[in-house]
Simulated assay, not measured.
Amino acid sequence: MPDFYPCVGRFLYDSDLSDETLQVIAAGETVTGSEREAVIQASYDATLTCDPNGEGVN
């Protein structure tokens, strides 16, 4: 699914997450603090949006 990660990136970029949090995500680090739950929810929503049929699941 070559479009999956660009779709997730766009979804997260368009979300209400702060720029600082997006930088932490891009660095592959774990988000802690007040935005942690928002990151979990945004990631879940992005996955459902970008792979609604679960095609990337093995």
Rank of each mutant, 00 (worst) to 15 (best):
T30W: 06
A27M: 15
V57A: 01
V24M: 00
A46T: 08
I25F: 06
S43P: 14
L12E: 02
G28D: 09
A46H: 06
D51F: 12
D3G: 03
S15Y: 04
S15G: 04
V39M: 05
F4C: 01
G9Y: 11
D51G: 05
R10P: 00
G28R: 11
T21V: 00
V39R: 10
A27L: 13
E20W: 04
P52V: 14
N53V: 12
E35M: 08
A27S: 15
G56W: 04
R10N: 02
G54I: 02
A46M: 07
S18L: 09
G9P: 05
C7N: 00
P6K: 14
Y13V: 05
E55L: 15
G9H: 12
L17Y: 08
A26D: 13
G9R: 03
T47K: 14
F11E: 00
P6I: 08
I25Q: 11
P52C: 13
L17T: 08
V39A: 01
V57M: 04
N53F: 15
N58H: 06
T47P: 02
D14A: 10
P2L: 07
A26C: 04
S18Q: 03
N58F: 06
A42W: 10
G54L: 03
I25K: 13
L22P: 11
Q23N: 12
L12H: 06
E20Q: 09
D3W: 11
P2T: 02
T49V: 05
L17I: 11
E37A: 08
V24Q: 09
A42R: 08
R10L: 01
C7L: 06
I40Y: 03
V24E: 11
S18C: 06
A27Q: 14
L12A: 12
T21G: 02
F4S: 11
E55T: 15
D45Y: 01
P2W: 10
M1F: 13
V31W: 13
I40G: 04
R36V: 07
P6T: 10
V8Q: 08
Y44C: 02
A26T: 04
N58C: 05
E29H: 10
G28Y: 15
P6Y: 08
D51C: 07
C7E: 03
F4Y: 15
S18Y: 07
P52Y: 15
V39N: 00
C7A: 02
T49I: 00
D16A: 13
V57H: 02
T49C: 07
